[in-house]
Design a protein around this nucleic acid. Structure first.
Lengths: 224, 224
DNA sequence: ACATGCATCTCAACACTGTTCAGATTGGAG
DNA sequence: CTCCAATCTGAACAGTGTTGAGATGCATGT
């Protein structure tokens, strides 16, 4: 706990770790930079050699967490139960993973999902949103999503999933049965995908939506 | 601005007003109790005769805002365009109102929707969530929503709508065309309702979901 | 009219926060 | 072995939420 050497070695990630556990212990806002520094055994000002501000630390923690989550969601899609390679099953697995995370680690999830922290400049890889769009592409290729319905579909699914996750992390919705949350998530995904597939008259001339993520994606494809 | 009388008269709502405009000016977290007090022309400790803590002030502001929003959403439903009294048109109007609010007043919306602040003990009337469930009931009575699909449908619609609102308020999704947000909202509502209506095999034995709002509703129906 | 009670507000103080900056300490490159 | 740049410390600043003891004045009862 107390370090002996003057130089810490990897203070940056040590601070991220300390902040993360503090968030878990005291909630998304119940901690301070000073406390995290003290827990690492370092003076408060030391942190400023690795983060420009407390807010930068939060952003960095968010990015680290989102990257880890994205990787896990990708795995969840691969290991999806059900018929071999059914795109819908994969999307359900993705949704379950996303929501399960929000419920298992609500304090961190609240901090991260509060967003604003994850602008288009961030280099999160793979970003959960990327995983979602990839899975929707797979669904479209399988023919389960008509062409016009695919366009902008990620916003519908994302909104529904994100909304459920936020509601759960904030404690606005609760489920007594631990299985209930999974079933409810599955229902949300199924309902959304069904609704999209049977979109009778796709909104004529629907203007393109733009998200921080699509911008980031575009920037990645055409660097400079 | 500067008051002459020693007693303010209605300091409580004056503080709420000051906090509200401060949130608009500097963001959900960029303000302090002291600043709000100073703007009202009162010492910082005066606030503690009306609010137990800064957090209580935030909660009170959230409740006031949600009550106002609920009333406006109810009006939006009444004035819904489209065929006379079409329940789906009413729900679309509700969704548009909810999302428009999140976009027109994003800082306040972020503060309010961050939630946790709006527990079941709050006496918000009419709560936006109540308005939504009432409209879903109307839809079910009109036969546009099969019985088994109605059960727990509010969570699906709420999640989708809430998710879109949060994504917009947090700036994670942006729309260039001002019409786009309305169209996207409409699409989310339509898609969700369509998906619910055509729910092929409603999840067998789906356990009851419970939200802070259903609890509050139950408590209101059976006081004591 | 006047005293009294009580809600309301002020003042001063506490511990704590994020942030800055001059200087001490070090690992590693030349 | 020297020196540099990266890293960390210590002390300080303005500002925060919160508390408690005391001042102020409105409304009420006589």
């Amino acid at each position: 706990m107390a370090r002996e050497r003057y130089h810490h070695g990897d203070l940056r990630s040590a601070l991220l770790d300390a902040a993360e556990t503090l968030v878990r212990e005291r909630g998304a806002d119940g901690w301070s930079l000073r406390e995290a520094s003290a827990r690492v055994g370092v003076s408060p000002s030391a942190a400023y050699h690795h983060f420009a501000s407390r807010d930068t630390l939060v952003r960095a923690l968010s990015e680290r967490t989102l990257g880890w989550l994205g990787e896990r969601l990708r795995q969840d899609c691969e290991r999806a139960p059900g018929q071999e390679d059914d795109p819908q099953c994969r999307l359900i697995a993705l949704g379950r993973g996303y929501v399960r995370w929000a419920l298992d680690d609500p304090a961190v999830a609240r901090l991260v999902l509060r967003g604003g922290a994850t602008g288009p400049d961030s280099s999160i890889s793979p970003h959960p949103h990327d995983v979602l769009t990839a899975e929707l592409d797979r669904l479209a290729e399988a023919g389960a999503l008509p062409g016009p319905a695919r366009e902008g579909a990620e916003f519908v699914v994302w909104a529904a999933l994100h909304g459920l996750a936020v509601l759960l992390a904030d404690g606005l919705v609760r489920f007594d049965d631990p299985h209930a949350v999974g079933l409810q998530t599955e229902r949300v995904v199924r309902t959304t995908l069904n609704g999209l597939a049977q979109e009778s008259s796709p909104t004529a001339g629907r203007p393109p939506a733009r998200s921080a993520y699509t911008e980031r994606l575009a920037a990645r494809r055409a660097p400079e």
